[in-house]
């Protein structure tokens, strides 16, 4: 906990971010380039053919969409319980990235579904859960927009994130339960060949670094934005 409080000072956070960010950004760019290169020249999947190349975008997006929501819920809990000043900024800064990856997961999933299922959309358990996750992200973003005062908005949004994170496992489980009783096919059946695992893992790493880099930038933007707001309030007061 001591570390958390040490990082709680936005000024210190900004100084550390300024040092770390160039390296993070460079590492992201390199890893992303390497991952894309590996993915595009990886051999074709024997059973699924060329469309399986979509996997390299779909799977990292899916994993990030869930990881980011987990991170948001964690940050929200810290913001709500310890009133940690950076936690709600981190949660807010994450939301748009997470929603974007969720959308990307849904779109790439349906582009992959068309050649494998013959339709763009099947009520597959994973795609359906992902769609509901997308709705929860939208609700979270909406509540930030609906309440003007950032302090109150942050607490309301934290409650939304916590309610979502408690319910998400239940939702996912219920959708799987519903789905197995209706029996449609899923994407990615069978095991992944090792020749595909290396590019996939590289891209996952790259997407994760991308999230961290962008998160820091967005947090910095939020901090600067709040300072501007504070200035304007003081100015109006004077």
């Amino acid at each position: 906990m001591a570390n958390l409080h040490w990082l709680a000072n936005p000024g210190r956070f900004l100084r550390i971010a300024a040092v770390v960010l160039p390296w993070l950004a460079a590492a992201t760019a390199v890893l992303l380039a390497v991952g894309l290169w590996l993915a595009l020249r990886a051999p074709q999947d024997a059973t699924q053919g060329a469309p399986a190349k979509i996997m390299y975008m779909h799977v990292p997006s899916a994993i990030l969409s869930m990881t980011i929501f987990g991170a948001m819920a964690f940050a929200s809990a810290i913001a709500l319980i310890w009133r940690h000043p950076l936690a709600d900024i981190a949660a807010k800064a994450s939301a748009a990235i997470g929603a974007g990856f969720t959308a990307s997961c849904l779109i790439t999933g349906s582009l992959w579904g068309r050649p494998s299922w013959g339709t763009f959309w099947v009520w597959d358990a994973r795609l359906t859960s992902e769609l509901i996750l997308f709705f929860i992200y939208l609700g979270y973003i909406a509540i930030w927009q609906a309440i003007e005062d950032p302090q109150r908005a942050s607490r309301a949004a934290a409650i939304v994130a916590l309610a979502g994170s408690v319910n998400l496992p239940i939702i996912h489980y219920s959708v799987v339960w519903w789905n197995t009783l209706h029996q449609p096919p899923g994407l990615m059946q069978g095991r992944t060949d090792p020749s595909m695992a290396v590019p996939l893992l590289t891209l996952m790493g790259a997407f994760f670094l991308f999230y961290v880099t962008l998160l820091l930038w967005r947090m910095e933007r939020e901090i600067v934005g709040r300072k501007i707001r504070q200035f304007r309030l003081l100015r109006a007061q004077a």
């Binding site: 509901i132 709705f135 929860i136 939208l138 609700g139 909406a142 509540i143 609906a146 939304v160 309610a163 979502g164 319910n167 239940i170 939702i171 489980y173 219920s174 959708v175």
Partner: peptide, 12 residues
């Protein structure tokens, strides 16, 4: 907004 927040949680 209320329905947007609540509806996904009604799924189970």
């Amino acid at each position: 907004l209320l329905s947007l927040l609540v509806m996904p949680l009604y799924v189970p």
